[in-house]
Nucleic acid binder design. Structure first.
Lengths: 347, 347, 347
DNA sequence: GCCGTTCTAGAATATTCGTAG
DNA sequence: CCTACGAATATTCTAGAACGG
């Protein structure tokens, strides 16, 4: 059934287990209605998701934060979680990176900020700045170093990719981790933290949806972004070509052909679509164009592989020129090509 | 096996004739004449409904809401109907599909809703969150799980269409779930809740009628719309080209060629007919024009085809360059092209 | 005696200069820098608020709602402020005017709202219907009746303006209480409820600012709007030409030349600037253009005039072919004429 | 230059008022 | 009185533009 991701999880189930204690178990809690049905689906395609709990320390840190914050928000706490530390070391750096960001930006992180341009200066995020948290980080780092790389066969690109996201391409614009990758990481880590009831992949990992916007924006977003406006998050989604799903089981979720749960590396291919400056002609979305063919094909191939692995399910090999996504690996979709281009192509 | 749509084969005539098939069993409802008798008809066309009583969480949830609200309004919810309330199997998919949206809307009324189109699932609605409801969910989920995976082998129409209502055109503004789809969902869910005595499909699922306007508007509408006037609901019907049936047993019902009980996907093809401003010429509703004769015939033909396809769905095998369903020929809406584009055409 | 508007006479300059008058009293609030200090300023400009504590039913009702909701959100409602909460007398009329609409709106939010177009006063809203509240209403009404008509010499245009927002233009479509007026009412009522710490007028009543976006959107907005997105509120502000103040002590507030605390009637002159479809050329927002200098000066002049007129109101004798207020010259919105017609002009 | 955040505007649907028939 | 529909505003989603790092 699922491939090897399972190895490193059930054994010591660090974070996730802890968090799983909190029980929105199965994320079917209060407000997940339809999503839960998806979780089944997700389980089918990625049954091992929960087991990836301990693959990185960002997760750890974030996990803690999540725990604390969620507790604060009247959600059952999970006392044990701290003991489990084991993300890979390289992510530690990332951790620190993000930490600075987040702390620095606490103003805008303040969930109270909302309208207009004022958000005050909500002093500091207590969780992030807490000494307690710092200590934990240290402790966990030690533990972490002893662990083997969890993402052995998983698609995690390479530890090094944090700094050079793409072998052929240096960091873009001074940003270490562009939005799509960060979002992908967020999703994995939230899932690892057992809070898929807040936000999670849906539709076999081909899209994601926010189930609890309030919690998401208040408790999770600040750990990854400096946005003080929820609309900023949306803007990023739009800029990268995510499309709001307006039908089907995942309605309300966001979809991007290159945003696939099992392939975080695909995120690197995503580019901002609206180029704003001068050159209106350049407005056509690069994402749509270039990515339109090869990237999608790649994605489809990967997706197909996943299908095969999943339950030895090898569907149609139509050999049509149509990418698999469309023809059936996941959903037979002839229009996949149309969609994206359509938006930019309009005018 | 088909759900029995063949029954109305013999009546491939316009609305009135079509509806006349329905037994003129004196309406027992408050203000509908023959409407209530339709439950029989529905049963005829979907005899197997009973088998899927507990197929969905959303249904459960909404059911509870309905029940509670209706009880609150001092009217017994008629337990018998409940047991007999079961859409046909093919609607199961639809249910799952729509589940998310339905819950989301509750959020959208909820001030906490925030991000992009997803806002979690009725996390704030007390009815939804009630423990009682949660238990129900659990129970039903177990039962539900006994069923085979919906997306597994259930032939989802098309992957891409799963995600986007219109594969060729990206959504630019507006809401996620337009009125017709929401209305269709409402009808299915009300039926699932066993309250077809308030509002239901009639005429073999080719139209719908409100049997108890008062209850409908007070107890059901608020769960789906934000309207405070019943006239707003009617305005929407008009905007989308529904026709009031003023003869025959289904008098008082509303009809639209693309509004068919068994085909929730048809709703996606429906377009607003009156495009608010400008383009007065384009105001002519294609529905009204073409619907008189041929459109209905076409629709009936399609419906017949659906029966055949129901068990094995082999879409677009048509040598035509555009399959009926896909291209919307059924809608017979030449102006559909004009209308929608009209807005953009303005420039 | 005038209500003190003369205080800002000396600052008849553009926004920034104008707002700079406000003492940059160090923001003491959580996230507002200089915003909270504005309460002082408000007091300066309307010192007599205390005298009219119980002047209106709507206020009472909403006040109760606010109190309850805010308490529920774990924040002490500050009883002292309550006693001090009193809009100026001239607002009484406005209050009554809006009462109907406001109550109705509560219905529309309420799932139990009555059918059809009547659903008079929040018959279903538990808060409104509570006996406790009813008693309060009675008591206060008696007290209130003892008061002399507050709007006697005030500038309220005419009671009849509810139905005809503009003498020259009859409302045909849309809502009864447009956004600006509703917003103005909101601000007054929030102040009356003693919660100016959440949202309030600033800059001598020439702008408003949201000090606690979270609370504002969660507790107050739902009482007035049906928005589920904060961005919708902002969109409305933009549509009506509000400008975000990005300098000075009132930074983060929103300004509109016709949005003045003491002149709720000015709100009626505000018009939507972006008229959805067509007429791209008309897109230029007149507000932005002209407002920069002269418009504000004009507005200031008007404000000064208001001081003089306040006791004896003899408006625009200007002999200009356009009275200041009526013709919107104050608004300096030449495009106002273009815009609205623009919609139909499309084609 | 590229990316992130925010403000503003465009575009589509939703809701309501008013009126003609 | 009621239906249908024009017209105006309301709400939401997407995209353009500005600014900063």
């Amino acid at each position: 059934m699922n491939s090897g991701n399972t190895q490193f999880d059930q054994s010591n189930t660090p974070v996730a287990a802890f968090l799983r204690n909190n029980a929105p178990t199965q994320g079917m809690g209060v407000d997940m209605s339809g999503q839960f049905g998806n979780s089944n689906i997700m389980m089918n395609s990625q049954p091992q998701v929960n087991q990836l709990n301990n693959f990185n320390l960002a997760e750890l840190k974030r996990l803690q934060q999540l725990q604390q914050q969620l507790q604060a928000t009247n959600q059952a706490p999970n006392p044990m979680m701290q003991s489990s530390a084991n993300p890979s070391a390289l992510l530690f750096q990332n951790y620190l990176d993000q930490k600075i960001q987040s702390t620095r930006f606490n103003d805008s992180l303040n969930p109270l900020a909302g309208v207009g341009g004022f958000s005050g200066m909500g002093s500091q995020n207590p969780l992030i700045n807490s000494n307690l948290f710092q200590e934990q980080l240290m402790i966990n780092q030690n533990v972490m170093n002893g662990m083997k790389s969890p993402s052995g066969e998983m698609a995690l690109p390479s530890p090094h990719s944090i700094f050079h996201r793409d072998g052929s391409r240096r960091m873009r614009g001074g940003v270490i981790e562009p939005f799509p990758e960060k979002l992908h990481r967020l999703l994995l880590e939230v899932e690892a933290a057992g809070r898929s009831d807040i936000i999670s992949f849906v539709a076999n990992g081909r899209a994601f949806a926010i189930h609890m916007p309030d919690k998401f924006f208040k408790d999770i977003v600040p750990l990854y972004f400096r946005q003080s406006r929820l609309s900023s998050f949306k803007r990023q989604l739009n800029l990268y070509g995510f499309e709001l799903i307006n039908t089907g089981p995942a309605r309300g979720g966001y979809f991007h052909e290159l945003f696939v749960k099992d392939r975080p590396d695909f995120c690197r291919k995503m580019r901002r679509v609206a180029v704003k400056v001068g050159a209106k002609s350049s407005k056509l979305s690069p994402t749509k164009e270039s990515q339109g063919e090869d990237a999608i094909e790649k994605a489809d191939k990967i997706l197909k592989q996943l299908d095969d692995e999943q339950s030895s399910r090898n569907d149609k090999q139509d050999s049509m020129e149509k990418p698999l996504i469309e023809s059936g690996s996941l959903h037979a979709e002839p229009a996949a090509v149309d969609i994206s281009p359509a938006t930019g192509a309009v005018e």
